[in-house]
Amino acid sequence: MKNYVVVFLMLFAVVGAQAQNDSIKKNNFGKNELKLNAVFLLFGSFEPSYEYNLTEQSSIGVSAFLPFDETNFEMDINYYISPYYRIFFGRKYAAGFFLEGFGMLNSIEQKLYITSTEGNYNYRDEDVTDFALGFGVGGKWVTTGGFVFEVNGGIGRNFFNTNSSEYYDYSPIVGKFGFNLGYRF
């Protein structure tokens, strides 16, 4: 019986030592990240992001979208501000595959139906502000020097102007995607 106890304790010690080698690798950098969406720059808009790593498997952040070139960017988005929370499934510190939950305060230029007394329809541009909740997926890679590359995409739903029939071609669905480049410090 004593042999079984000794063998069990040795097996437990070997498994425990192996588990220590499989832990998440932590880098020597800080918990802050600044990123910029590289694809949106090509289309005339600016989307910076700030992210704070809470633990080795979760982070919070915020991104803001601002178009600066209306000729290249043909969407009618005025701006959005999107806070998010991420859960990571990788072996590195706050990196690898992740799931994201986000909120989005957005403003979109929409055409408003105007009915004249003769029964004709005209349109007038109007800014519509709404709030959406959504989810996304992505992947993040961090080099040993602190350089960050990230690919993500998500979809959400606006809540406040979804049943309004006075707007022409208004969609309650919002999306976000990015090829972000940045630095962890």
Results as ranks from 00 to 15, higher is better:
164 S>F: 08
105 L>A: 11
136 G>F: 04
156 G>M: 02
153 G>H: 04
70 E>M: 08
54 L>F: 14
137 V>H: 05
94 A>C: 11
143 T>I: 05
104 M>Q: 14
50 Y>C: 07
108 I>T: 14
119 G>T: 00
42 L>I: 09
159 F>E: 03
75 M>N: 14
159 F>I: 14
89 F>D: 07
32 N>R: 09
67 P>T: 07
91 R>F: 04
76 D>G: 11
78 N>I: 00
45 S>W: 03
28 N>T: 11
139 G>Y: 14
47 E>T: 09
107 S>W: 01
148 V>P: 09
165 S>A: 11
119 G>P: 08
146 G>A: 10
122 N>Y: 13
164 S>V: 12
154 G>R: 03
51 E>N: 10
126 E>Y: 05
124 R>I: 05
58 S>M: 14
134 G>A: 02
145 G>D: 10
128 V>H: 05
40 F>M: 09
31 K>S: 09
45 S>D: 11
43 F>K: 03
32 N>T: 05
143 T>W: 07
132 A>K: 01
69 D>H: 11
59 S>W: 00
76 D>A: 08
35 K>F: 01
60 I>F: 15
30 G>S: 06
37 N>A: 10
113 Y>D: 14
131 F>N: 02
132 A>C: 06
153 G>A: 11
63 S>D: 13
134 G>Q: 04
46 F>G: 09
161 N>G: 05
101 G>L: 13
90 G>N: 09
157 R>V: 13
77 I>S: 04
92 K>Q: 12
129 T>M: 12
73 F>N: 15
111 K>G: 08
93 Y>H: 14
34 L>Q: 01
118 E>I: 04
163 N>K: 15
140 K>A: 12
65 F>C: 02
105 L>F: 10
140 K>G: 02
67 P>A: 06
128 V>L: 05
148 V>F: 10
44 G>A: 07
115 T>S: 13
91 R>A: 11
32 N>L: 08
148 V>N: 10
52 Y>P: 06
164 S>R: 15
98 F>R: 01
156 G>V: 04
136 G>L: 03
34 L>H: 00
136 G>M: 06
101 G>W: 04
131 F>Q: 00
40 F>D: 12
86 R>A: 03
118 E>Y: 07
127 D>T: 08
